[in-house]
Simulated assay, not measured.
Amino acid sequence: MAERVVPPAARRRRRPTKTGVVLSEELIVETALRLLKEHGADALTVRRLGLALGADPTALYRYFRDTDDLLLAIADELIGRTLRTWRPTGDWRADLRDLGLRMHSGSLAHPQAAVLSTYRVTGRVHEIAAVETILGVLRGAGFPDAEAVRIYHAFVDQSLAFAALDAASVALPRAAREAEAGVWRATYARLSPDTHPHIAATARHLVADMRRSAYPEALDLLLTAAAARLDEIRRPPRT
């Protein structure tokens, strides 16, 4: 999609497409997510989107300047889907753990989109709401502002990094995923204790553990460290 800016007031199309569909930003993003999931990153073109929507491809410029603008909207929609399913309980640690796991699983539900978008900063409504929400949880727990921002930064970057890593793995063809998982059995589990004593001693655990995401454990470690830091902050100074 090449750069072509249409004034916002002129963007929205009122007439239905030739297939009877009335275009909207929401419909275009939903269709883009579906195409990415089914066909990968190559599907994110104005021509493919136009065909899928039954619309003249140029009509998409009424809603998005270019494919990068659309990609930011896709990233923001993934964030919005997470927020819509999350309900806070008032327990800051449990709430952040639940939110992080939902962010991660939401990315794995759309791995191709996650690979393309997890590293982007959208500045859009859902991302802004997420930043406000997470900072509110941390400040409400008692973290001073500077600490709240540092923990927010670590929490979000950890979540997005694991989302991108695991989404990239999920997006691989099944044969490639199975071949990589088999390396732990075929190679690591057969290394000699004479040359690789630590791998040999833990091989059965490696085979079992390396097939799954480490994100839940990494998230728990981060939250445990954050809780320890909060205890330090609350501890009265020594006299």
Rank of each mutant, 00 (worst) to 15 (best):
S24N: 08
P8G: 10
P237D: 02
I74S: 11
T187S: 14
S169G: 14
S107N: 11
R13Y: 06
W92M: 03
A179Y: 04
A2V: 11
A73N: 05
L135V: 11
E217N: 14
V21L: 11
A94L: 12
T224C: 01
H126C: 01
R185K: 13
T17S: 10
L60N: 06
R4F: 05
A10M: 15
I74E: 09
D157M: 04
I199P: 10
S192G: 00
H198A: 09
V170G: 03
L44C: 11
R238W: 05
A175S: 14
L96H: 13
A214I: 01
Y215F: 12
A189L: 04
T239A: 13
A10Y: 15
D95E: 00
R235I: 00
V156G: 03
G142F: 14
L101I: 07
V149I: 10
L138K: 09
L36W: 10
A154E: 11
H153G: 02
T133C: 10
A2Q: 15
A181F: 13
P173M: 04
L23K: 15
S159K: 06
A73P: 03
A130P: 04
S192L: 01
T31R: 11
R84D: 00
R13M: 07
Q112H: 12
R177Q: 14
A179D: 05
G50V: 12
L108C: 09
A163Y: 12
L221N: 15
R14M: 13
R81H: 02
P57F: 08
A228Y: 12
W86M: 01
Q112S: 08
V207M: 12
V22L: 08
A59V: 04
V207Q: 15
T239F: 02
H153I: 01
L96M: 10
V156N: 06
I151Y: 05
A43M: 09
R238D: 13
L27R: 12
A113S: 12
Y119H: 15
T89N: 07
G90F: 03
H153R: 11
I233Y: 14
T187M: 07
V22R: 15
W92G: 03
Q158Y: 05
D76W: 04
L230A: 01
L53R: 14
T17R: 04
E132H: 13
D42N: 13
V149T: 08
A161G: 07
M1Y: 04
L44M: 08
L222N: 00
R234G: 04
V5E: 06
